[in-house]
């Protein structure tokens, strides 16, 4: 049974339909890379999965929970669905460690001591052992993004959504973030990534989804799809990326 199930989801902004009936099944442990041109609806789809965006028709379920409108239900759902953003969105008034500790103490009501120990362990895991007391403004983009990943992991999500998490980074900082994501993938974390990193999608992904004009245009194993695109649109898109 799939962990994330998306069935015929439609979403419009006014008259503009951005998701025109998207269906997708994502299993536990899958590393799904969603690629496509900007405006193809890939970020919108990702944001629908944890309820940051609402959708008008169809259904999305995560681990059996329906992504609906009720705020209480959404909060329960979001405890299981982590999200990392393009712009990091760290809390600038808190240190790296406090960023990681905040949701566990406030939302999950964990003890300060436990949360602190976990935050230290998570920062170490993302390669930032010595940065517990650093403020986001004192960190590089790559370091900030790794703190953001640690912050999401602190809620022990069953699935992690990554929305173009390397797009705002200087080229030399991209790899340090991708390495962390790759490690998560190898540990069996379910990941859904909207990305422009084609090599990463091919090498780390277990599933590739190509979105085009609000629809899933093609999906399948990344290596096979990259080698033999089934449609001219994907062939052209892959060609334009290098």
């Amino acid at each position: 049974m799939s962990l994330v199930s998306i069935k015929d989801v439609r979403k419009s902004y006014g008259a503009q339909e951005v998701l025109k009936g998207v269906s997708l099944e994502i299993g536990r442990g899958d590393v799904t890379a969603i690629i496509g041109r900007s405006g193809s609806g890939k970020s919108t789809l990702l944001r629908c999965i944890n309820g940051l965006e609402t959708y008008q028709a169809g259904a999305i379920t995560v681990d059996g929970m329906t992504v609906g409108d009720g705020e209480t239900d959404l909060r329960t759902l979001r405890r299981h669905v982590g999200m990392v953003f393009q712009q990091f969105n760290l809390f600038p008034h808190l240190t790296a460690g406090e960023n990681v500790m905040l949701a566990p103490t406030v939302v999950a009501k964990e003890q300060k001591g436990e949360a602190r120990a976990m935050a230290e362990a998570l920062l170490e895991k993302v390669g930032l052992a010595g940065k517990f007391d650093a403020y986001p403004s004192q960190l590089s983009g790559g370091q900030q993004q790794r703190v953001a990943i640690a912050r999401s992991l602190a809620m022990r999500p069953t699935v992690l959504l990554c929305d173009e998490i390397t797009s705002a980074l200087d080229p030399e900082l991209v790899n340090e973030v991708l390495k962390v994501v790759e490690q998560l993938a190898s540990e069996g974390m379910t990941l859904i990534l909207v990305t422009h990193e084609m090599r990463f999608a091919r090498d780390v992904g277990t599933k590739l989804v190509f979105m085009h004009q609000g629809r899933v245009h093609e999906e399948g194993p990344p290596k096979a799809l990259f080698a033999n695109p089934g449609t001219p649109e994907l062939a052209q898109f892959v060609g334009s990326q290098h």
Binding site: E71, T76, M155
Partner: peptide, 30 residues
């Protein structure tokens, strides 16, 4: 306060009150 602060805290399952208390107001205060 940038929209991303709301979205990040929302994604971490904060309630509206928790967002205000721990994320938005401390920044707005400054």
């Amino acid at each position: 306060i940038p929209k991303g602060q709301w979205e990040a805290s929302e994604s971490l399952a904060f309630s509206y009150g928790e967002q205000m208390r721990y994320v938005i107001l401390p920044q707005a205060l400054r």
